[in-house]
Amino acid sequence: MVKNQSISLKNLSVKYPGSTAPQLKQMTAQADSGQIIGIVGNSRSGKTTLCQVLSGVIPTIISAKVSGTYTLNGHSPVDDWPAYNQLTGVVLQNPAGQLSGLADTVADEIAFDLINQGIQEAVITKRVNQAAMQMGLTAQLTQHPESLSGGQLQRLAIASAIATDPQILILDDPTSEMDPVGRQQFFNWLAGVKATTFIVSNEIDDLCEIADLIWVLQDGHLVAQGTPHQVFNHLSANWQLPAPTSFQLAQKMNWRLPTSDFPVNFQELREAIHATN
């Protein structure tokens, strides 16, 4: 298989000043642009640090010692950060901390990134409405951001990130406060997104449905990378990760794919049942 490896990390290491051990250790990974990369791992495994490196927050805003090389869609987060930053949409862990702090309405909040880019007001209105619609916030556009629930705030943060139509999306646990229905809607939406997407999540089932690649982090090491199928068919107990429900079910029922692997999402599960019977 010939791969256009436009996302490339080589020997990436990150260490905060004052900490004894590095947070990321010698990470080397590849992906194609336009892919969805699910980042999984236990707490303290380095997922958030990786998101901060990919978005350029480290070392531009938070100082840390970074070594190794990394480029995304052919751009480096370090060389010209302001330019790189315009290509990315980032959602951090705590949705309330991402509000601009000076918006009266949800619409104003979504418009913030666009105003900063000096975009025409007519275009802004259109983009705001589009982004709000995609995140199911149209009814809330005139509400005060404060009046939103945690899950709605997360959708607001995502809407703000996608309003600028970024090439690269970096999402750090964006559904932690959403209810099950909201989470399902979000993952359905994400499946159709064109941008290169990095998403940290504990929702293994959902990731296996939509991700092209899974990166497994453990204690700062990238211990596995590959398709969800590859990664979860070689799951190690050390990673402290659950297998997706389809996998668990197939394993119990001994429904194997023709390759004798187990399925990791619903489509594969159906194939496996078909192959077994």
Partner: peptide
């Protein structure tokens, strides 16, 4: 203070100091 840290990062990510910013 945690929220301030996060907001400080977020404002920069969202490009608040972009010279192209236009006043509403």
């Amino acid at each position: 203070l945690d929220q301030s840290m996060e907001r400080s990062i977020s404002l920069q990510l969202r490009g608040f100091n972009n010279p192209k910013r236009r006043a509403l």
